[in-house]
Amino acid sequence: MEGILTMLGATSQGLIWGVMVVGLYITFRILDFADLTVDGSLALGGSVSAILIYNGVNPILSLIIATFAGILAGCITGILHIKFKIPGILAGILTMTALYSINIRIMGKANTPLLGKNTIFTVISEWFDGLGANSKMISEIVLGLIVCAVIIAIMYWFFGTEMGYAIRAVGNNKHMVCAMGINVGLMQIIALALSNGLVAFSGALVAQNQGYADINMGVGTLVCGLAAVIIGEAFVKQESNFAVKLIFAVIGSVIYRLIIALALQIGMNPSDLKLFTAIIVAIALGLPKIMKRKEKQQC
């Protein structure tokens, strides 16, 4: 029984963090941009949402405002990269570093507890009251599924629009996009804004779910997200439909959380988790390249 509960818990975590993974998929896979802003914008979303709820704002409204805060953070990274020609990784690091101070400013201290406050999760778990002790867990999973489904549907629509096409092409071939009369820089900024908006939204959900926002809650977001994206990609063909790819990115997020839960259960030290994740990502990114080189040598 305890095992099932752990798995359900990991699933709900995977779904809530899955929104962040969809956001990361946009920058990492579509735009071909490793955006470190996410480490800051996840905590930004959490901080904004937590402080608003703490001050009596409606939890759903706080989610929306947190998303806009993330969009702003993405715009700043985009402007640093496009207008000031700062390399992408560094632009992300700059915004992330700045956000550390900003997040403390927002909360006034390093963390904000939400004890006894209404969050979107407490509201929804009331609907499932009849289910007894597990109502909280079930409400988390239901909410996570709904949120992920809605966001994947919106992304599927968006990347089928003219602007969505342009953004996909930017990650592929900037010359071609420029030749189509499209402002390449603007498309990159829009994609970064969209991505960080989703990441901040996810951060706000995480804070409401765990009952507090913490200045360090975003540390390692990029690497965790990459792990989820890579795990998900192991199950999809290159030719697959875009919506299928996003669904598997979220499934990758769930699997990642299950692996983590398993690792903890067999006695891994929680502080070693980030090392574990980083090694997995390094291997997953590096292995295909090494295999390819071997193939060539054989020829």
Partner: peptide, 9 residues
């Protein structure tokens, strides 16, 4: 050369 907006492409 046209606007790349939010119409389905």
């Amino acid at each position: 050369g046209k606007k790349f907006g939010l119409k389905w492409c």
